[in-house]
Computed example of a mutant assay.
Amino acid sequence: MARSTADLLAIVERIHAKNASLVILSMGGQSLDTSNPTSKMMLTMLAAVAECERDLMLERQREGIAVAKSNCKYQGRPPIANEQRDAILTMLNNSMSLTETARRLGISRATVYRIKRDWYHGFL
């Protein structure tokens, strides 16, 4: 519902500004109604715990990537369209639309746009 505790509280305030309240029903038999101060406090605490867990997970992920890089095990995701670059440029040079090119090659339109942009700006 929100990316951070502050974001969640801002959403709750926008709901309250419309003379409504947020009611969360899936709390293990309990419900939280943000019109109630105790429920609002519980929601804030749960959001803070969730944000902390997310931060810890990201920290562990960064540490794992750093260890993998130091052991030359982490290369990142291989570029999807590198092997299809020539086919993409050929299709575009033959006046095929970007959407059709992406559909025929089974790749995203964003990838086709990026290849076209890189070629146009001389990065390829």
Rank of each mutant, 00 (worst) to 15 (best):
N71A: 11
D55Y: 04
Y120V: 12
L22H: 00
I11S: 00
L58T: 03
A50P: 06
A68L: 12
E59W: 02
R114Y: 02
Q84V: 00
H16M: 02
L43I: 02
A50F: 06
N94S: 15
R77L: 06
T111S: 12
A17N: 14
K18T: 08
L105G: 04
I88C: 01
M91P: 06
E100H: 14
V12W: 00
N36R: 07
E13Y: 05
Y120E: 15
A48K: 11
E53T: 00
E63F: 06
N82F: 08
M57V: 01
E59N: 02
A6I: 05
I80V: 15
T34P: 07
L25R: 10
W119T: 13
R103I: 01
L9T: 02
R60I: 00
R54E: 01
T99M: 10
S95Y: 04
G106K: 14
E63I: 02
R77N: 06
E53P: 04
A110R: 10
A10S: 13
I15H: 02
R62I: 05
V49S: 07
A81C: 12
A110C: 09
S26W: 01
T38L: 14
R62S: 13
T34E: 10
R104M: 12
M42L: 11
E59T: 13
M42Y: 01
N94M: 08
L124G: 14
T5N: 09
M27I: 00
L105M: 12
A110K: 09
L9V: 07
N71W: 00
R85H: 11
E13D: 14
D33Y: 05
M45I: 15
M1S: 05
L58D: 06
R77G: 06
R54H: 02
S31R: 13
T90V: 10
K73H: 05
A68Q: 10
R14M: 02
S35L: 08
V23F: 00
I107Q: 12
K40M: 12
T34D: 11
L105E: 01
D33P: 09
